[in-house]
């Protein structure tokens, strides 16, 4: 890497780190989120306890695989692209985006850096306490059967980490599409109301994807949201074996590339029609 591209990389990193620090200030929201997600985590576990007690058939997932799915899902909920960054939405609405265009940076990459931090920071704030709680605290208070199991193997655990990195990239790219679309819609309210109804279903957060009927499986397989929850969770539990995990992670990156190209082209179109308010 030559000196110029290195310092350019540094510029985007600085943007991301700054935004990251800012989002980390919203600790109250993170604690409240943690409480809510814990509550729903318990409800989901109880639903599946009832489900597994009521069935004699062999299900596509074991109870322990479902536990992994639920607790990781609760911990990584904030990673899903279900909302837009209020700061970017505000910049677009008030015309503050002019200053973004005054910086010697590529606009897509500039926003991508900000969006990456916007997705990563709250996730980190919630994931850590959720993992501690689900793994350590639950057994201590007598719920050891409901606790989060360890990864299936060391390799599964490692691949899970790689897969979550891909999830972050994928989710950020998808959020970017929404951010670019804001240039047309101006208000982010539409996305903020619509996406929570769509994304968690297709990512597998309402019902784990393998438990959907067989005829739906091909459709569920060929959509990008799967890579935002289902894939990393099943790699962790070994439901996706190690040798298949490489392919699944490659698929996540494939979808990432597709969505980045989509967002980038959308931004080029938006740029030509961008009329900054107050001209």
């Amino acid at each position: 890497m030559n000196a110029i591209s290195k310092s350019l990389w540094h510029a985007y990193l600085a943007v991301a780190v700054t935004r990251f620090k800012m989002v980390l200030q919203y600790r109250a929201a993170a604690f409240a989120g943690f409480g809510t997600q814990l509550f729903w985590g318990f409800i989901k576990v109880m639903v599946f306890v009832a489900f597994f007690e009521a069935t004699n058939e062999v299900q596509p997932m074991t109870f322990s695989e479902v536990l992994v799915y639920i607790w990781l899902g609760q911990g990584l909920l904030a990673l899903l692209p279900w909302n837009v960054d209020a700061e970017i939405a505000n910049d677009i609405r008030t015309g503050g985006v002019v200053y973004e265009l005054l910086r010697p940076l590529d606009l897509y990459s500039f926003w991508f850096a900000r969006t990456l931090a916007f997705r990563a920071a709250p996730t980190l704030l919630r994931l850590t306490p959720m993992l501690i709680f689900a793994y350590w605290v639950l057994p201590l208070i007598g719920f050891s059967e409901w606790a989060l199991p360890l990864p299936d193997s060391f390799a599964s655990g490692l691949l899970f980490v790689f897969s979550v990195v891909a999830t972050l990239a994928l989710s950020t790219a998808f959020t970017m599409v929404m951010h670019v679309a804001l240039i047309w819609t101006i208000s982010g309210e539409g996305f903020n109301r619509m996406m929570p109804g769509i994304v968690p279903v297709f990512a597998g957060l309402i019902v784990p994807l393998p438990l959907f009927p067989d005829w739906l499986q091909p459709f569920l397989y060929w959509q990008p949201f799967r890579g935002m929850a289902d894939v990393p969770f099943r790699i962790y539990s070994g439901h996706i074996p190690v040798d298949e995990a490489f392919f699944e992670i490659a698929m996540q990156w494939f979808w990432f590339a597709v969505i980045v190209v989509l967002g980038y082209r959308l931004l080029i179109r938006a740029r030509t029609r961008l009329v900054v308010q107050g001209g």
């Binding site: 510029a11 600085a14 943007v15 800012m22 200030q25 002019v98 200053y99 910086r103 010697p104 940076l105």
Partner: peptide, 26 residues
């Protein structure tokens, strides 16, 4: 400078905005 809107980051101390601009402009 657009007098009607700021280019500084609203929630950051002033010096951190300067430092971020330093990195952005390399």
């Amino acid at each position: 400078v657009f007098g009607q809107r700021t280019q500084l980051w609203w929630d950051l101390p002033v010096i951190e905005s300067f430092e971020l601009l330093r990195d952005i402009y390399r």
